[in-house]
Design a protein around this nucleic acid. Structure first.
Length: 151
DNA sequence: GCCAACGTTGGC
DNA sequence: GCCAACGTTGGC
């Protein structure tokens, strides 16, 4: 899950009430579909800092609430306002995530060096999606790299 | 700031 | 439905 730390960083998530925050602002259909169809309560998410000096994985979150309408699409003051979205049939969804851990920062350059992670959608040529799937195998490798031990 | 790689838009 | 033009993303 990519976020620009200047907008929402892992520290912001940690500091939010109960460590929970809605993953607002996704405006790409494929990324939306990953949230809507594939992210289930209790699933882990890797919190990735993008568009910054050193991009990479900064922490781990848990899906706390599954797909529901992203409120910012109806807020004319929001940069994510979408006048074409019908409140009776919302176009954009979000999940709610809960802070789990801030981890040893794992730079993108390091992720690229790990052969077992070459399959990551995040690394594929031309990928720009802010939400990309991680297989359980990839997740195990990542968790080991950031020294997170989970049941 | 550059630029590749997309996704979206809108005229036809 | 095609496709050129345009806008966005995001690493570098």
């Amino acid at each position: 899950m990519k976020s620009e730390p200047s907008e929402v960083s892992i520290d912001d998530v940690a500091a939010s009430p109960d460590g929970k925050i809605g993953w607002f602002g996704v405006r790409n259909y494929e990324a939306r579909n990953f949230m809507r169809d594939d992210m289930k309560k209790g699933d882990l998410g890797f919190f990735y800092h993008s568009s910054c000096a050193v991009p990479g994985i900064a922490g781990v979150v848990v899906i706390d609430q599954e797909s529901h309408p992203d409120p910012t699409q109806f807020d004319p003051q929001s940069p994510y306002f979408d006048p074409k979205s019908d409140p009776k049939n919302p176009r954009w969804m979000q999940v709610q995530v809960r802070f789990l851990k801030k981890t040893t920062f794992l730079p993108l350059s390091k992720i690229r060096e790990v052969p077992e992670l070459a399959s990551l959608r995040l690394l594929q040529r031309g990928n720009r999606l802010s939400i990309t799937p991680v297989s359980s195998e990839e997740a195990r490798v990542l968790l080991a790299l950031i020294a997170v031990d989970l049941p």
